[in-house]
Amino acid sequence: MKGQPTRNVTLLSPGAAIEGNIILDHGVSLFGIVGGNMIAQTGLLHVGPGGLVQGHVDGDHVRIDGTVEGDVYARASLEINGRVKGNIRYCGTIRLGPSASLEGQLKRVARELTIETESSAMPEASNVQQISRAAGG
């Protein structure tokens, strides 16, 4: 539809095996095997039933129905119905399903501070220090 944003989702089907890191600027659903890290800048990062990630997972909205053997970082929401063997850090909400299996530490962390400027120049060092102090740094 005209004027509607395009929502891209990459699908990695059962039988797909990728050795290396996957970094996307959109969502992904994995039903195969990834021997590396999976990072989705926006959208849903979904490890589906039968899916396996042997590395860390990093995304805005993360849903794990398969297996992750590595650390998980969810910036907005996290839902686990599968197995995670690694530490979990999340910023927003978390939901653990009845079949969730966790082997590692679970920790809620504050959202990362983002500094935006209107000009292309970096802000003065004193401004950065003031922002850092205001954020508790």
Results as ranks from 00 to 15, higher is better:
Gly104Tyr: 11
Asp65Arg: 03
Lys2Cys: 00
Met38Ser: 05
Leu12Trp: 06
Cys91Leu: 02
Glu69Met: 09
Asn127Cys: 04
Gly48Gln: 05
Val62Lys: 06
Ala17His: 08
Thr10Leu: 14
Thr114Leu: 14
Leu12Asp: 07
Glu19Trp: 00
Thr42Tyr: 14
Gly15Ser: 05
Gly15His: 03
Cys91Ser: 12
Glu103Val: 12
Pro5Ser: 01
Gly35Met: 07
Glu116Ile: 13
Gln130Cys: 07
Glu69Asp: 09
Val128Gly: 09
Phe31Arg: 09
Gly70Met: 11
Glu112Lys: 14
Glu19Ile: 04
Thr10Pro: 02
Ile80Thr: 04
Ser29Asp: 06
Gln54Val: 05
Tyr73Gln: 10
Arg95Ala: 14
Ala134Phe: 13
Gly43Met: 07
Gly43Glu: 05
Thr6Glu: 13
Leu78Met: 08
Arg89Ile: 03
Gly66Met: 04
Leu78Ser: 07
Leu30Ile: 15
Lys85Phe: 05
Glu103Arg: 09
Ala134Arg: 13
Val53Ala: 06
Thr114Gly: 02
Val84Leu: 01
Gly32Phe: 06
Ile33Leu: 02
Ile94Pro: 11
Val47Lys: 02
Ile94Asn: 12
Thr93Met: 02
Pro5Asn: 00
Gly66Thr: 05
His56Lys: 15
Ser126His: 08
Asp58Gln: 13
Asp71Tyr: 03
Arg83Tyr: 00
Ile22His: 08
Gly104Lys: 10
Val109Pro: 00
Glu116Trp: 07
Ser99Phe: 07
Pro123Leu: 01
Lys2Arg: 10
Leu24Phe: 07
Ile88Gly: 09
Ala40Trp: 02
Ser77Ile: 00
Arg108Ala: 11
Ala76Leu: 10
Gly55Ser: 04
